[in-house]
Design a protein around this nucleic acid. Structure first.
Lengths: 242, 242
DNA sequence: CGTTCTCTTGACTCATCTCAAATCTGGTGG
DNA sequence: CCACCAGATTTGAGATGAGTCAAGAGAACG
């Protein structure tokens, strides 16, 4: 199956690396891009790989992770549609990129992209903004990894999934919302720095407390959104925002 | 005490935000900068503060941290000389910046800097590179926070301090090296997602195992550097590097 | 309708935290 | 120079949250 559409019709056009580009710039991107589909579980980039892929996640969810020699594994990023993959000019990939779902990626030809970005300020500027946003999220995640309890960690990912769900359905965040859990228990464990068993137990505990209702292992309803937020202990005060 | 020197003589000239600037650009920076000293323990930027400082750390060590409402605290970054402080265009600081030592900062006038960076590609490009490096470190740290044991965590910071020490003295990393611990036990605990007591216990344990020799609480000698590296379980394989 | 994978649950262990007290250190004033 | 104090660090004893090991229940798939 040959997927292809012009940048102008791209669903992530205004949020991805190309967001600040004008028409002529888009055309140059069009020339060096191609769409590639990966199926759930597939590894898109292997840590250690040379001249790894550069591109944008168009749809689906992918994970960025890193392992210790003995196999302990930590997810270091969650890639959602419009997120950028790769670092221009980098020779070796430092992380595994794995498709959590079926995923569609807008890939750029590595060498061409590296050249293009050097004389396209709109690309460079967008990449800077996106990288800074990612740095903020990474730091937010450090707080979660270092200081939150297992229960708070689970509540925190659920908030993330709830936001993503509301966005996908163009619905409001609020009571009674329903969303999908796009990761396996194992992926969540890697994300949260927990074991699979602890993840499962905390889901059960939140269910028992009435914070969530589990339709099945992958579908959640939240009767009281504020309560979920509280369970996550997210400090609303020192509020991030640009 | 009025500190001041021209950018050309600056000790961090070739590693800071100004690294890619040419002479005329440096002069423009010179116009909007001033040096400010902060003493150990002083808070340089408060989370939530408006129009927070933008600048470069010239000397000393500072910490970047974030707290939960109930007071749990996690350090999300360690600032060493040449590191950049602040995000251009950001209205509210999301983190506390605290001087761990006596610190010297090259501060820029916020509004002027925000304008300058918009038409100085050398600045923007350098900021992009630095931000990407920080993102890599943040992710490395996520692995530590999520998956390393207390002992590995301590060994890992010690490696960082050892590197910094070797750099300061222009000496080689190797056996028998000696360095200073520039953070209190409390700051280390916040950095590593541990308690102060656990930090202290692990120092004692590493001492007992002969991995380190403690001259006093703040000065360490390492008879066998490779052994320390192993204790940190840093995977040398999927080696990072740009 | 077995096979396999994911998820849940139980029983037990252990690393790290909590609470508490002792020790060390540098600085201060006499 | 010394006694004393406040903060930093170490150490101990006990509590506990999360991990480990093991088994069973669902769900998806050929």
């Amino acid at each position: 199956m040959e997927i292809n559409f012009r940048c102008g019709e791209c669903p992530i056009r205004h949020r991805a690396i190309c967001a600040y580009c004008d028409e002529p710039e888009l055309e140059r991107l069009d020339d060096i891009k191609s769409y590639k589909a990966y199926s759930a579980g597939e590894t898109i980039v292997w840590a250690g790989e040379e001249a790894p892929l550069i591109g944008s996640l168009v749809s689906g969810v992918a994970t960025l992770s890193r392992s210790l020699k003995d196999g302990r594994r930590q997810m270091v990023g969650l890639l959602l549609p419009s997120d950028f993959i790769g670092r221009p000019g980098r020779k070796v990939a430092p992380y595994d990129v794995v498709a959590a779902n079926d995923v569609l990626i807008c890939q750029f030809r590595v060498n061409k992209f590296n050249i293009l970005i050097d004389d396209t300020p709109a690309l460079e500027r967008r990449l800077l903004d996106m990288t800074m946003d990612e740095l903020d999220s990474a730091r937010e995640w450090m707080l979660l990894l270092g200081r939150k309890t297992a229960r708070e960690k689970i509540a925190s990912v659920l908030v993330i999934f709830a936001r993503r769900g509301a966005e996908l359905q163009h619905s409001e965040l609020g009571d009674g919302l329903r969303f999908e859990v796009p990761l396996t228990r194992e992926a969540m464990a890697d994300y949260l720095g927990l074991t699979i068993e602890t993840v499962s137990r905390q889901f059960s505990a939140l269910k028992k407390s009435g914070v969530i209702i589990m339709e099945d292992a992958r579908h959640i309803r939240v009767p009281d959104y504020v309560r979920l937020l509280n369970e996550a202990s997210d400090d609303s005060d020192g509020g991030v925002i640009a």
